[in-house]
Design a protein around this nucleic acid. Sequence first.
DNA 1: AGCGATTGCTTGAAGCGTCAAGTAACGCGG
DNA 2: CCGCGTTACTTGACGCTTCAAGCAATCGCT
Lengths: 175, 175
Amino acid sequence: MDVMSETDAPGPMAVSGDQPRWLSQAERAAWMPLAGLMIKLPAALDAQMQRDAGISHFEYMVLAGLSEATGRTLRMSDLAFLANGSLSRLSHVVKRLEQRGWVRRESCPEDGRYTNAVLTDEGYRKVVASAPGHVETVRALVVDALTAPQLRQLREIGTRILSNVDPTDDCGAAK
Amino acid sequence: MDVMSETDAPGPMAVSGDQPRWLSQAERAAWMPLAGLMIKLPAALDAQMQRDAGISHFEYMVLAGLSEATGRTLRMSDLAFLANGSLSRLSHVVKRLEQRGWVRRESCPEDGRYTNAVLTDEGYRKVVASAPGHVETVRALVVDALTAPQLRQLREIGTRILSNVDPTDDCGAAK
DNA sequence: AGCGATTGCTTGAAGCGTCAAGTAACGCGG
DNA sequence: CCGCGTTACTTGACGCTTCAAGCAATCGCT
């Protein structure tokens, strides 16, 4: 049904020049659901936010990040890191959020290179209104489906993979 | 550092109308790495395929799916399901792959509504050339970082979440 | 047999993310 | 204190995905 099992039909591997270490049955069985998840979980999260609040999941992360920062203010770079996005992406998104009146941009007085994103009162209201629905979705799709030991395992597994994918991201490990 | 912990600062939850069940510390610790993964793992996979083979991860899935089908042929709908994508997305992608000479489209003689996507010989060569690099990446980022028990846990956890997100997707459970 | 409904796929437009290039502010060596 | 490099961010163009609409083939009801 997919690539890279040793036990499957003719597939590409039959011809390959040198011999890569194809995935075993067990490895494939672990990888396939994860591959599916990476396509569909973000889509499901986005769909819920879009439907219930008219914003993308990423936009929500940005607003939520700001809502918890001291002074509801964060430098663009820090906000980008927090929301797992590139600075460029954040710049575009904040521009849209600014046009919608939820965020304001101001240049940092101490160092003119920095730009601070500030959550407006209206933006704060937006987060407060959207947060419960988001949490409920995360619960329904992920958290409530797992046992306590599984949550611990997911944390350990997720952290380990993430540190491989992006070593600079400790995803809040420093807790 | 993020939303929805009970123990954190002022956040939105302090004001909310009714009382959603916010995530506990442990739940949040499991969710955060997963949220990061969903952004960054697909990006890493895409980057590798783009760099080494000049195609996206999704395009690879399409070619690989065809390469293992009997007759290297699959109906558009089946292929879309296999690659975890919408029919519309597949249609656009197959058009590009067709222009590049890797796939051919032909209308099903039995039922004119069906369209069969067929992998050309050149397309097959492309898959064979790209597969080892893809598998190596999956190993490097995911599989090789985990112990055998963790692989089993990941399979169980991933399957369970996926069945919540999309009940129609058994991601190869019928094995 | 005829015709509306359904199925399978395609298309065009709109929106978002990425990449590469650009700008502005600061720091530091001479 | 001048200029070069660096840092932080912005911008525009391009490609991809989605969404809504459309089209063609077939099914089912009478």
